[in-house]
Amino acid sequence: MSATKEQILKAACKLGRNILENGGEIYRVEETINFFLEAYGIFDAQIFAIPATIIVTIDEKEKPITQVERVKSSSLNLDKLSKFNDLSRRACRNTPDIESVLQEIEDIRSEQPYSFFISLMAYGFTAFFFCLFWKGDLRDSLVAFVCGLSTKYVLEFMSKSKTNIFFSNALSSMVIAYIAIFCVNLGFAHHYDKIIIGAIMSLVPGVAITNIMRDIIAGDIITGTTKLAEVLLIALAIAVGIALAMSTVIFFGGGL
């Protein structure tokens, strides 16, 4: 064992950080770091994680060592999440040397997500099938498909110009509502409500809703409350965006 404790700590923090950034739960991050450190022979480490920060301290006799990781943005990438999870399992079982673990983390980090076209089609077809699911007819679903494409374009543009989560959700749902209402008024589709519902399903924070109670029950009450605030914020943004579009149409066009 040539690796120093600093190197082991660095690798553990990197692993935890990547799991957090790709949408892992807090207890998974803390457990991963703990198991990793124990596998490399460091016991009684103090680990604290919230969605924005990870703090790990290992207690040496002369001087404790601490590392802080600040996590600024996290997005859901389930492929990378399961790969990092797999890597941490393997590392805990076989304890390879730290350099190869760090190398493997970098390899997984540099993998590209789906191309723009595939992701565009995913947004479009999500809106299409969810519109059918909410009992819209075929013409509604075709309009919803267009709305889904517009969502991807708006989100891409907003993430390039680095605006906040509230504004990007509000703008995308506003564009969706405009497209839906105009297509219905032109006589191309029948139910604008079903088009809008189908298209906003890719914005609605389903992941956070699922994880709130799991986090709270696992004991991470701070994380649960943060996620609750996030859910309320996004839901409000979606509602505000559609309401703005609808009320401007009512105001200038004299009715829906």
Partner: peptide, 11 residues
Amino acid sequence: LSSLVFCGIFN
């Protein structure tokens, strides 16, 4: 089908 295509959004 909608869950299937959503996998594209979640990578």
